[in-house]
């Protein structure tokens, strides 16, 4: 049977749910945090300013709104600062593994042979920071992994490698 010989083999690239041991984990670009902070402040910043003006000129009750928005901004910024470094990925012999989340951790392992296609997306903001998002698609829509914020060159290289590996290990549905 296929599984018998592999039961005890101590793999050098062990998958770990957390920590830096085992597989060669790679972080995503720290600029992703900057980009996300920028998006956050573009959404909440004008609101904060508007509320500030209203509170100063119209009615003091708006200070509650100011406080709430400021709190949301601070929480969002803290979350982004924590979450972005938690996104790590690694290429194994058989699979690509993406980990994310600190509070609620998830780990997705996508075998190369199961990849249907790979998307490399890059919006205007991401392009400005020289990043791209690599999205892995399998035959199951929920199962694909996503690696946001890869430096463009690295994303392209990854796509090439994945294409080559998918070709050599391809299987039908």
């Amino acid at each position: 049977m296929s599984d018998a010989p592999n039961n005890q083999s101590p793999s050098p690239h062990e998958v770990r749910l957390f920590g830096d041991t085992g597989m060669p984990w790679r972080p995503v670009s720290p600029k992703l945090a900057t980009a996300r902070l920028l998006v956050l402040s573009v959404f909440l910043g004008p609101l904060l300013v508007a509320l500030l003006v209203l509170a100063a000129l119209v009615w003091k009750g708006f200070w509650v709104g100011v406080l709430l928005v400021a709190l949301a901004l601070a929480t969002g910024a803290w979350l982004i600062r924590r979450q972005v470094p938690a996104i790590t990925w690694a290429e194994g012999e058989e699979e690509l593994v993406v980990r994310r989340g600190r509070m609620f951790r998830t780990l997705v392992s996508v075998p190369y042979g199961r990849l249907q296609f790979v998307d490399v997306q890059s919006g205007p903001l991401e392009r400005r920071f020289g990043m791209a998002t690599v999205e892995l698609h399998t035959a199951s829509p929920q199962s694909g992994g996503q690696i946001p914020g890869l430096p463009t060159a690295e994303a392209e290289a990854l796509r090439e490698r994945l294409a080559a590996r998918g070709e050599s290990q391809r299987a039908g549905l």
Binding site: F104, R105, L107, S109, P111, S140, Q142, G145
Partner: peptide, 24 residues
């Protein structure tokens, strides 16, 4: 198709994790 491991805060305290097998 792929495998997914999830672990929430309570699960982490207990040292357990949930494994999902992704199908079509």
């Amino acid at each position: 198709q792929s495998l997914k491991v999830e672990q929430g805060p309570v699960q982490r305290r207990r040292g357990v994790a949930t494994v999902r097998l992704m199908s079509t």
